[in-house]
């Protein structure tokens, strides 16, 4: 088959084939290729791909902005609140363990 070859010589062979109108397969494929349904389908697929790409990009960008903002604004807050809670807990534990002594020591 001519399709087995590929490379640079392919367009030449196909051009000669269509002019002699010998293969049924090429005629069928060309008629399918030229039909309006296929054309519309291709266009729709192209549009969908375009929209999906845009959507993906914009959601990616939005996620990036939201993520970095969260990282800056809330991650330090969470860490510091956790530290504060730990400190308070430690103090509570010490107070309950030692009871009165800390006040007498101080």
């Amino acid at each position: 088959m001519s399709s087995g070859r590929g490379g640079v010589s392919l367009p030449d062979i196909r051009g000669s084939g269509s002019s002699s109108s010998e293969g049924i397969l090429t005629r069928v494929t060309s008629s399918i290729n030229n039909s309006p349904i296929v054309y519309k389908g291709k266009q729709a697929a192209g549009d969908v791909a375009f929209v999906a790409n845009k959507l993906l990009r914009s959601t990616g960008k939005a996620a990036w902005i939201a993520g970095t903002t969260f990282l800056i604004l809330f991650v330090p807050l969470i860490i510091e609140m956790d530290r504060e809670a730990q400190l308070t807990e430690l103090e509570m534990q010490q107070a309950s363990l030692l009871g009165a002594p800390p006040s007498t020591l101080k």
Partner: peptide, 21 residues
Amino acid sequence: DYILRQCRLRGKIDSNGCAAA
């Protein structure tokens, strides 16, 4: 504006798309 025992943390976000801490 959080004032904790060990630290003070301030954060803001404004309508120009600027976040700061």
